[in-house]
């Protein structure tokens, strides 16, 4: 066993809603400091998988280990501690619209559960927010007092990214980071993600159906189809996979084994 122990280790994870299987026997390992991208069509279970790893949703069976500890066996306060080490960029950014930008970014410093760290006072938190906003390429001095609805979608995404990395998390999750952005802004966000992750040394899991984005931000890629991981491999091999499902999906072909389910 020369292989180092994975940061995130998922074994036999299953989840169903009623008779509808959303995840079936998922097994995956994410090594520390690497970027893992999960691709898959709408309704393939990507979001559910992400929510399970975050602990927002409980699976029916299986284990998710972070640093070797099953997160579903943790006590309430241990769980809060784990969450403290995680950050998440939501698809719609999910900024708090009643708070100004800087308070959004500094939210976990001001309000979050903070073990072993004193709660930041507002002046410190504001300074930190300013630094993080500059890190994601925003004109911090001009926008920190604005509210989220006064920003464009791309800027909101950046603020969302700033909020996710503000507490220097060990694991960062990205839920379709480029969806709803134009291709150039998508590329910019991807670059920011890669940059920030490198600087922080974090482990990341992203879900996306944007192939360009998957290759830009991922080291490892896995494809989820009907709740099962049907392919895993290096990101640069993704486009040359001979798996017919992956081939159809990555090249966006109409013909192939995947039939889109129109019926509900």
């Amino acid at each position: 066993m020369n292989q180092p122990y994975p940061k995130i280790r998922i074994r036999n994870l299953s989840k169903s809603f009623g008779s509808n299987y959303v995840l079936r026997n998922i097994n995956m390992d994410v090594m520390k400091g690497t970027s893992f991208v999960i691709i898959g069509g709408s309704g393939s279970g990507k979001s559910v998988l992400l929510r399970c790893i975050l602990g927002l949703m409980a699976p029916d069976s299986g284990t998710i280990e972070i640093d070797g500890k099953n997160i579903f066996e943790l006590s309430y306060s241990e769980q809060a501690e784990k969450l403290q080490e995680m950050g998440m960029l939501f698809q719609n950014s999910a900024l708090f619209d009643s708070l100004p930008i800087w308070e959004n970014v500094a939210f976990s410093l001001l309000n979050g559960h903070r073990k072993n760290q004193p709660r930041a006072n507002r002046a410190q938190a504001r300074k930190r927010a300013n630094r993080v906003l500059k890190l994601v390429g925003l004109d911090a001095n001009n926008i920190e007092d604005l509210y989220p609805n006064e920003l464009s979608g791309g800027m909101q995404k950046r603020v969302g990214l700033a909020r996710a990395i503000a507490s220097k998390p060990e694991i960062i999750f990205f839920d379709e980071p480029t969806t709803g952005l134009d291709p150039i802004m998508g590329a910019i966000i991807d670059n920011l993600i890669v940059d920030c992750v490198k600087k922080l040394g974090s482990t990341t899991i992203a879900i996306t159906h944007d192939m360009a984005s998957a290759q830009r931000i991922g080291d490892q890629v896995a494809m989820l189809y009907k709740g099962e991981l049907i392919w895993q491999g290096e990101a640069d091999k993704l486009m040359y996979s001979d798996n017919p499902y992956v081939h159809q999906f990555t090249h966006g072909l109409y013909e192939g084994p995947i039939k889109m389910e129109i019926k509900v």
């Binding site: 602990g55 927002l56 809060a80 969450l83 698809q91 719609n92 619209d97 939210f107 976990s108």
Partner: peptide
């Protein structure tokens, strides 16, 4: 409905 409550959880806030 805009995931802000999930966002609270991910920012380790109850």
């Amino acid at each position: 409905v805009t995931n802000q409550i999930d966002a609270l959880k991910t920012l380790s806030t109850n």
